[in-house]
Design a protein around this nucleic acid. Structure first.
Length: 417
RNA sequence: GCGAGUGUAGCUCAAUGGUUAGAGCACUGGUCUGUGGCACCAGGGGCUGGGGGUUCAAUUCCCCUCACUCGCCCCA
């Protein structure tokens, strides 16, 4: 039996990883310019954290978690998302005492036992942020501006930002009642799934894609018409802020996030290019979560970006090519030049060389194949004359360099062109 | 969890119920013994995903299984 990667997990190979790296670099630098700091959270946690944080009736908790017992019999789960862990850490280390607002970002793998398909894996990568400690709409705007900046930076522009407000602990229970009353008369027209949601989480019916359900939800009372005064003002200020920053968005009153903890602002960035997996980033405000997990009442907002999905929208990028290839003929040349290659590499020059001991023709071929800009040729003749031949691979011009000064002259030459 | 499709060389794909399963690209070597891309020539590579069945004979037909892809669901 062949050993291979388990279902739904994937190697990201050279040629594919470059887009991921660029996304990560762009995110890091933009997040940090917004004053966010990285937090490295564990890949597994006690199961209860996710059950309570994400919501016991969500699909993630009900059927998608990688949960098992460790050797002590403790129930642990591979993290299906990052927010719960960040909040746990925030509470555990009392970060609320250190600054009025904690602005954190994280990146790394998440695990969900789902059926894999395009843009959906069982181990997938997210880059996420959380801002804990303020419920000001300005933070919602800032967070969305930051997300938008990252996507712009990496050239992912044909996407749509959808936002909605889900109400808070004041108006949401009222709305929920109104919604249930409305759906009650249409129960028979709803899909099986939604009939269950009617009991557990009626708002989820709003974003069901089933045709029958859509017909019913089209005329359903909108959450936006049932916001309390505070939520209404908050939502309006978020929209105003986005307009002021000229960040395009559409209000989607049927947007309901799949995790229980969201309140007020909820948003999604979607694309039409990835089939059924149209969400490339999503998030929202979760003002009740910190308290729910045992911390002081603390508002918060965050989002997560789907790394693989965004990478699929980015242009494929080349793996870095060598600056220079050392074509060395004979053991003596290898012996003499090895320290030079190490020194140059220490200065950040990408140096490649031949490891097979082949002839010059073969080494030139390898240099060409690797895409080196220059090839440095050193054989017996050069050693005797104290020279090295530097060949520009693009225009075939060659110049002689003094062997003893290579370490000084080469970086200079490579920088010039 | 449900439905559909596809599994043949490293990659993209042919082929046929019947001799030794082919091509292009890639790879290795040569033409060209110290100068790359081009061209020509040669070569290495395959339990045709795995198992079972039908058959004189299966890569081909049937069943099971595994994997991948796409959709449903859900989500990033």
């Amino acid at each position: 039996m062949k050993i291979q990667a388990i279902r739904g997990v994937k190697d990201i190979l050279p040629g594919e990883i470059e887009a991921v790296q660029r996304l990560e670099q762009a995110a890091r630098s933009i997040f940090e310019s917004f004053g966010f700091s990285e937090i490295r959270i564990p890949i597994f946690e006690v199961t209860e954290l996710f059950a309570r944080g994400i919501g016991a009736t969500t699909d993630i908790v009900e059927k998608e978690m990688y949960t098992f017992e460790d050797r002590d019999g403790k129930k642990i789960t591979l993290r299906p998302e990052g927010t719960a862990s960040v909040v746990r850490s925030y509470i555990e280390h009392q970060l609320y005492l250190k600054a009025p607002v904690a602005k954190l970002y994280y990146l790394g793998p998440m695990f969900r036992h789902e059926r894999p398909q395009a843009g959906r894996f069982r181990q997938f990568y997210q880059i996420g942020i959380e801002a804990l400690g303020t419920d000001r709409p300005a933070m919602d705007v800032e967070v969305l501006a930051m997300l938008s900046a990252v996507l712009n930076q990496i050239g992912v522009t044909e996407v749509q930002l959808e936002i909605n407000s889900l109400g808070d602990s004041v108006c949401r229970p009222e709305y929920r009642k109104t919604l249930k009353a409305y759906f009650k008369t249409y129960l028979s027209q709803l899909c099986e799934n939604c009939r269950r949601r009617y009991e557990t989480n009626p708002m989820r019916i709003l974003d069901c894609k089933n045709e029958g359900c859509r017909a019913v939800t089209a005329k359903a009372p909108s959450p936006l018409d049932h916001l309390c005064a505070d939520c209404l003002v908050h939502f309006q200020q978020v929209k105003d802020g986005l307009n002021q920053l000229k960040i395009p968005f559409v209000v989607n009153e049927h947007l309901v996030r799949g995790l229980d903890y969201y309140m007020r602002t909820a948003f999604e960035v979607t694309t039409t290019k990835l089939g059924a997996q149209n969400a490339i980033a999503a998030g929202g405000r979760y003002d009740g979560l910190v308290k729910e997990l045992g911390g002081p009442p603390t508002p918060g907002i965050g989002f997560a970006m789907g790394v693989e999905r965004i990478a699929l929208l980015m242009e494929r990028m080349e793996t870095p090519k060598p600056d220079i290839f050392f074509a060395l003929l004979g053991e003596e040349a290898v012996r003499r030049m090895l320290p030079v290659t190490i020194q140059l590499r220490g200065e950040g020059v990408r140096v490649e060389m031949d490891y097979s001991g082949g002839g010059l023709k073969k080494q030139m071929g390898l240099s060409d194949k690797l895409g080196a800009r220059y090839t440095l040729i050193i054989g017996e003749n050069e050693l005797k004359a104290g020279k090295a031949m530097l060949r520009n691979m693009a225009d075939k011009s060659q110049t002689e360099l003094s062997l003893s000064e290579l370490a000084q002259t080469l970086p200079e030459r490579l920088r010039k062109t």
